[in-house]
């Protein structure tokens, strides 16, 4: 097999490659944040005139809340009533599975193709 000689990349090309990679990475991480799509699906229930009892807190819990600086039930109500929403559609779950499996399938397929070239050149020189 003929040995592959890679082209030399100039400084400008190197800079462009780094910028492209950075844009993709920062975009992937920040776009969901900017679009308000990221974040935990947490909601708090508004409770009028909450008491420790109505928030389901027993004597020991109340003592600890007070030590933590929450003087009354109203100040801790938002924290106590915060709950995740774990409802999801089967369609969304299947989409996630397809995306993950598809990703690894692409990785393994392309990697195998590249790997065969590497082994061929390394061991047939």
């Amino acid at each position: 097999m003929a040995r592959y000689t890679p082209p030399t990349q100039g400084k400008l090309g190197q800079i462009i490659d780094v910028i492209v990679l950075l844009i993709m990475a920062i975009g992937a991480l920040y776009i969901p944040l900017w679009m308000g799509l990221a974040g935990s699906a947490v909601t708090s229930t508004a409770v009028e005139n909450p008491t420790w009892e109505s928030l389901g807190q027993n004597e020991t819990m109340v003592a600890q809340w007070e030590k933590l600086g929450f003087a009354d039930a109203a100040s801790a109500a938002e924290m106590i009533t915060a709950r995740f929403d774990y409802s999801f559609s089967v369609g969304a779950l299947l989409a996630m599975i397809v995306v993950i499996v598809g990703y690894y399938a692409i990785l393994l397929r392309f990697s195998e193709k590249e790997y065969r070239e590497v082994i061929a050149e390394k061991f047939e020189e």
């Binding site: 991480l29 799509l37 935990s40 995740f84 774990y86 995306v99 392309f110």
Partner: peptide
Amino acid sequence: VFLGYGTQLVAMIVFYIVVSLWFH
């Protein structure tokens, strides 16, 4: 992770798919 943070999960894997194609 999907329970509560599904958007980040999909966004990150889409990033890795795109960047994989760029590399290959």
